[in-house]
Computed example of a mutant assay.
Amino acid sequence: MKNLLNEKELLNHIKDLTAIPSPSGYAEEAIAHAGRFLEEIGVEYKIANKGALIATIQGKDTNRHRLLTAHVDTLGAIVKEIKSSGRLKLTMVGGFHWNAVEGEYCTIHTAEGKTYTGTILLHQTAVHVYRNSGEVKRDEDSIEVRIDEVVKSKEETENLGISVGDFVSFNPRTEVTESGFIKSRHLDDKASVGILLHIMDVVKKNSIDLPYTTHFLISNNEEIGFGGNSNITPETVEYLAVDMGAIGDGQATDEYSVSICAKDSSGPYHYRLRQHLVELSKTHDIDYRVDIYPYYSSDASAAIRAGYDIVHGLIGPGIDASHAYERTHISSLIDTGALVLAYIQSDLV
């Protein structure tokens, strides 16, 4: 399976995706980018009312379907208030800690389509002025955006066209190292979206016949909890989320293999499907880790909560420093892609 994957093409997909701002609720351009690529390779797709993309490759069995999903939406923020100083207060989009974005460059996206750059800072950043700057709690009241424009008042910021409700995206700072790491914000889950786009390309280029009609859902609201709980065909019997594997103390997941989730905060994933993924990994010499993610949920678990009668599973590349400045290794991306490719050619469980 691995010999069919192209590292350069896979990394290019991920780099292209991370360069496109797409906080949950503002992911149209990232979805459009995926759509343009699918048109190039000849894969049919449609855009759902909620904005997600659903691509379909017909299989031999059209009565029972598979669905795989990855989400293109990311963490971000929205302007909550324009302060009297002209700086901005933010409200979070998605679940992260303010210290994870403190000091980050950002872009403000106005309703009129203009963009302005800025920096996310603690109000009391200057240590020469604020003796307790290191002790201040990082929250909505202390964090602000310093806009890279000459503004000294609320009115001057408003005159730029910036207003409450404007989206704010975080600079991804994507880099690929000579040692094989890719480090960037938003590898959760643009790494997996890149994998699915590459897999669809591999299937088309190699004229691979799939045993079952297979849908690839690029969801756009996962970070806020409901990205993949709709647009599931009645024929779908198996649903595999491809999302990041969580790394930390007590975790089995690493940056060099595919992570297969046994359980997250929503409960256990389908046991037979999990074992099927393990056996596929063993058969195809894919390095894998089975793990439990304690503070996590996925589009697959959202579909289960929505009441769908499906077999659900979760795999993904191991991502270090989740919801901050993330990193993984090309070997993890390749192992994940190889398992996806083996899975979509296998029998249902």
Rank of each mutant, 00 (worst) to 15 (best):
K2S: 10
N6K: 05
K8L: 09
H13K: 11
L17S: 05
S22T: 09
P23K: 03
S24Q: 02
Y26N: 11
G35Y: 07
G35R: 09
E40V: 13
I41A: 01
G42E: 06
A48E: 14
A48Y: 02
K50A: 12
I54H: 01
T56Y: 00
N63W: 03
H65E: 15
H65Y: 15
H65Q: 13
L68D: 05
T69K: 02
H71L: 10
V72Y: 05
D73N: 04
L75D: 04
I78V: 15
V79L: 01
S85F: 05
G86Q: 12
G86T: 14
G86D: 11
G86M: 12
R87E: 11
K89D: 01
M92N: 05
G94C: 05
G95L: 04
E102F: 05
G103Y: 04
I108M: 08
G113L: 10
T119C: 14
L122C: 04
A126H: 12
V127Y: 00
R131F: 10
E144A: 10
R146E: 14
I147F: 09
E149I: 13
V151S: 10
N159Y: 03
L160A: 03
S163K: 14
D166M: 07
F167C: 09
F170P: 04
T174W: 09
T174H: 08
G180Y: 06
I182A: 12
K183C: 12
S184H: 07
D189S: 12
S192E: 14
V193A: 08
V193M: 01
L197S: 08
K204P: 02
D209Q: 15
Y212E: 06
N221E: 11
E222Q: 06
F226Q: 00
E235M: 10
E238G: 10
D243C: 07
D243Y: 05
G248K: 06
G248I: 10
G248P: 06
D249F: 15
D249N: 15
G250N: 08
T253W: 07
D254Y: 03
Y256K: 09
Y256I: 02
S257M: 10
I260S: 00
A262P: 07
S266R: 03
S266P: 01
P268M: 11
H270C: 11
K282V: 12
H284R: 03
R289V: 11
V290T: 12
Y293P: 00
Y296V: 13
Y296T: 11
I310K: 07
V311W: 00
G318M: 08
A321E: 02
H323P: 05
Y325Q: 01
L333A: 04
A338Y: 02
L339F: 07
V340G: 04
